[in-house]
Amino acid sequence: MLELQNLSFQVSDEDAESRENFKEIIKDINLTLHDHTFTAITGPNGGGKSTLAKLIMGIERPTSGRIVWNGTDITEMSITERANLGISFAFQQPVRFKGIKVKDLITLSAGTDKKLSAGEACEYLSKVGLCARDYINRDVDASLSGGELKRIEIATIIARNTPLSVFDEPEAGIDLWSFNNLIKVFEELHETSSNSLVIISHQERILNIADEIVVIANGSVKARGTKAEILPELLEGTGSCKFYQ
């Protein structure tokens, strides 16, 4: 179980002409994610979704508030410690490396204690719609397209297989055929394990398969509920939608 308690995140914003010289990106968020749940986080661009994910992973540190993971306060823990406690994060913009191969990244993800066979590594790639043979020995560098990189990123998180996985807009840059498969992968991950999924997404089809939808706008939770409760309002269109004002 992950609990976000009064979580706030501010950055100093020297350029701003406002009297306050800081910007509040996450504002006093309280949110509990139970085990074995599939939560979709949505909301307008710039609302603070990625920042919230980075706070969970420890990439950003909150200005105030606490993050509690299975009863342990992890607010002060490093990224590495959180990773080892079973939290994973697929970046919205995956990182490129010169000289690190797709195989290396998947092997590191699966854990150093586990000797990953070539077949297993290929399986993760197939799941995200990549023909493993073509990719396994390629460098995770600028030679990969944005969509390829994105799918490899998702494969690394599947390989990690941790109690909590946060995916930041996994659908971005992915073609329709792969997207259909991706939906199946998320459904399967949810059904076949007791792990929890958090997926930041703008895609109705992802929102549709989630147990719960959380709408974040202007750094706050604007709404939270089942798809029956949230989707109709979201889909009324941005013009009239109260979340997007």
């Binding site: 990439i59 590495t80 990773a83 990182v95 590191l108 854990g111 150093t112 690394t156 990690r160």
Partner: peptide, 16 residues
């Protein structure tokens, strides 16, 4: 070394 490269590998459980 790009900071985000280190960050990414730390999210996979490696120390800095």
């Amino acid at each position: 070394i790009a900071g985000e490269q280190i960050t990414k590998l730390m999210t996979l459980g490696l120390t800095e």
